[in-house]
Write a protein that binds this DNA or RNA. Structure first.
Lengths: 282, 282
DNA sequence: TTGAAAGCGATACCAG
DNA sequence: CTGGTATCGCTTTCAA
């Protein structure tokens, strides 16, 4: 079912159907009604690909990030997706793992698909400036780097002043008489270095005593999902691992089978596993 | 620069260039070399849109989820993206917020774009069975639901046995003499109900005393990112809010400006904010 | 082995 | 206001 079929059934030309589809030009109300009736009858939606052929855009943007599982990145991705979704765009997410080669691979595909814009999340992408042959691949696509900067005509930046941030925190500590500060350095990105440069930061985690109940002796706890959070307390939380990676992997291979027309199960089940840890170890 | 230009410069026809591009048919090595030289000279990449026009696929899949910021979902998205990325697909992420109307909106766009497959993450999507006019929009697209099930010809499922999971945990508690169990019910999805149905679960969080240092009296702490994690301990962690939502939003609007050809700043800076909480309140 | 030509499904210009 | 036609850039027959 294409625009020709619609035109034929409505007894008019594809030009007129196109006008109705796009609310363009003046169309005789009678004919318009006829066309709209056919459109509704088949719940017709024009092919975005054919349209893209003419307009040179598929209304797609892409976000490249080291890893969507990092909550900090996910929060940004969420906002960007919502914003563009409201504009009729789709947002594809690319996990590069911080590898320039992966980045290169994505750039190739994205440029072939005429992606309308790219957002790079994380200062790791500052590395790109060293690889002109890679950035050349997307030289006609607007690129925004979150918390990074690459001096190229099509690159734009949104920067967070990390140095100032840590400086503020350190000052605050010193001003309150905390002279023995620790700074835990996480990764050697530009952002990480900027933070360290902010001077010093006090970090050390200890529990505050509260009441006399002990875990697990007096109170035992188990939770769900085996999230990383379950290991950040003392004692560690026992939890149910419902295997999101496995689940995701199964979804992917099931979908792949379907897309290839392969025979496959309609539904697959996963057995969760109980992970015993300190909060419930007897 | 298109396939005609390449053909012209290589002194051959577009058919032959197409053959070289796709490693198809037999091509005279001499001509092949000539074509490849031109291809390399311009670092030519064929238009995926034009190709899609013929092949009816853009090698794109979509993941619909309530919210990519939920770590549990992000972990699944990561795996799915990696899997399909290796196959040359792009994966777009859609945050529906659990709204069927949003879901409907996405389905419309995805079907116009001839998306090759859809993954639905979360049992909220079970609701879809009540809206045949919505599922009809993607009736020719394979759909996989993670932890959900909709009885339709093109829908497939990967299920987690939530009831059994909670049952295991409860049994484990009871078997160890914990008779006073609490179960904290989170949301009224099918998955949530399945878990509750698993019987009872003990949950209650308390700290274990350890050492005599007190926070913030003896040790003061500040961290980075203002992540939700910073509020799950007692006292709450002071933190630096570097405003990922704002950052994401700025990225989006900057990118949008660029895509519309609007004049705009090349780079924008955000000032982080110190959030004082219990772990560092003096 | 090669190339001419017919689609693919829209948009847009230009006559009428 | 309407419709014929060129066009977008590729893949795929079909002859030669």
């Amino acid at each position: 079912m294409n625009i020709y079929d619609i035109a034929a059934e409505a007894g008019t030309s594809i030009s007129t159907v196109s006008r109705v589809l796009n609310n363009k030009g003046n169309v005789n109300p009678k004919i318009r009604d006829r066309v709209e009736a056919v459109l509704k009858k088949y719940d017709y939606k024009p092919s975005a690909i054919a349209r893209g052929m003419v307009s040179k855009t598929m209304k797609n943007i892409a976000i490249l990030t080291v890893d969507v599982r990092v909550t900090h990145y996910a929060r940004m991705i969420y906002v960007i997706e919502q914003e563009f979704s409201n504009l009729g765009y789709n947002v594809s997410v690319c996990n590069t793992g911080g590898s320039i080669q992966e980045c290169n691979r994505y750039f190739e595909i994205l440029s072939e698909k005429q992606t309308d814009g790219i957002v790079l999340i994380g200062s790791v992408f500052n590395e790109l400036i060293k690889y002109p042959e890679i950035t050349a691949k997307i030289k006609d696509t607007p690129v925004v780097i979150a918390n990074g900067q690459v001096k190229l005509p099509n690159f734009y930046s949104v920067l967070v002043d990390d140095t100032k941030a840590i400086r503020m925190a350190s000052d605050y500590m010193f001003d309150h008489g905390r002279m023995d500060l620790f700074y835990v350095f996480d990764i050697a990105t530009d952002s990480g270095r900027a933070k360290r440069q902010g001077f010093l930061e006090a970090m050390k985690l200890r529990d505050v005593p509260d009441g006399n109940d002990r875990v697990p002796e007096d109170i035992a706890i188990t939770g769900c999902n085996n999230s990383p959070d379950s290991r950040i307390c003392e004692p560690e939380l026992a939890t149910l691992d419902n295997k999101p990676e496995l689940l995701g992997g199964m979804c992917a291979s099931l979908l792949r089978d379907r897309m290839e027309g392969k025979e496959s199960a309609t539904s697959v089940a996963i057995q969760p596993e109980l992970v015993v840890r300190g909060s419930a170890s007897f």
